[in-house]
Design a binder for these strands. Structure first.
Lengths: 145, 145
DNA sequence: ACGGAGCTACTAATGGATTAGTTAGCAGGC
DNA sequence: GCCTGCTAACTAATCCATTAGTAGCTCCGT
């Protein structure tokens, strides 16, 4: 049984998505143009990859005359969250704390960044602060404690 | 240019690594046995995958008589960190804060887990606490602020 | 000493990911 | 009205990932 189609974004797919996120709705020609600087890619290659993205529901297209205009149907932060959830499930048993500890325990982390992270944590809960703790039961994914 | 060999662990590879991490040094036969419960795999399939893992330097083997005994050469938390760094680079511009915000901003997070994460953050810096902030310059990867 | 059991090495088949060439349709210009 | 140029569709080629079969070697028991 060969590997099923990847749920997450592959490298080539991510490159196109990043372009769509930064440029907004674009034609295949425009995307190909934008890639020309670093790693040029043939028009048809871009087209093939973006059709895969459409099959995966990451983009939609709109026809205008003879050209197709593609738009990301998933925001960048949504895609990022999907990716984080993916590794969360694969490596951390869906435990965000464990991922957090890995993030903090990395030797390459600088003291300055650690401080900034603490700042982020200190103020982040403002938009998601629990009013009380009794609501903990409506989550879909299993979580460890 | 077709895709180069994945740097991170693929699904089949991760399944074997998890077995090695929990079991410790194991022969191919033992690994095949352990897989028999959920998704059985042929002896030769396990062997093929583990040889890929050895090529990727995730495992080493030791010969004892005619059999090979394989050991994970990378601890689970190391592999997890590698994976986190991978998504960090692909989706968050190597910014741990941005990943953290994605972690906290996920709608599926429960108030209880958020509280636990705050607790983790509050006590985690003990082993990596910055004495002063002036040391921030010896990191290898570029980081955003 | 010889045959079987078990193990590794080699080979193969299938399908995804990536890149790109070829084909064909359609719009606009001369 | 026909040719040119752009576009999407189809096809192809290459390599990786996954699964598995066959061959060949080695050890052990009889």
């Amino acid at each position: 049984m060969p590997p099923r189609q990847s749920i997450t974004l592959t490298e080539a797919e991510l490159r196109l998505m990043k372009l769509l996120w930064s440029r907004g709705e674009s034609s295949v020609a425009e995307l190909t143009q934008s890639l020309a600087d670093d790693t040029p890619l043939a028009y048809t290659s871009v087209l093939t990859t973006i059709r895969v993205l459409e099959k995966k529901s990451y983009v939609t297209h709109r026809q205008e005359g003879r050209a197709f205009f593609y738009t990301a149907s998933i925001a960048e932060h949504e895609a990022s969250r999907l990716e984080v959830r993916h590794v969360l499930g694969r490596f951390f048993g869906n435990s965000r704390e464990r991922l957090l500890l890995a993030l903090l325990g990395d030797n390459d982390i600088t003291p300055a960044e650690l401080t900034r992270i603490q700042a982020v944590i200190a103020q982040a809960p403002e938009d998601a602060k629990p009013a009380d703790d009794s609501v903990a039961g409506d989550h879909t994914q299993p979580e460890e404690v």
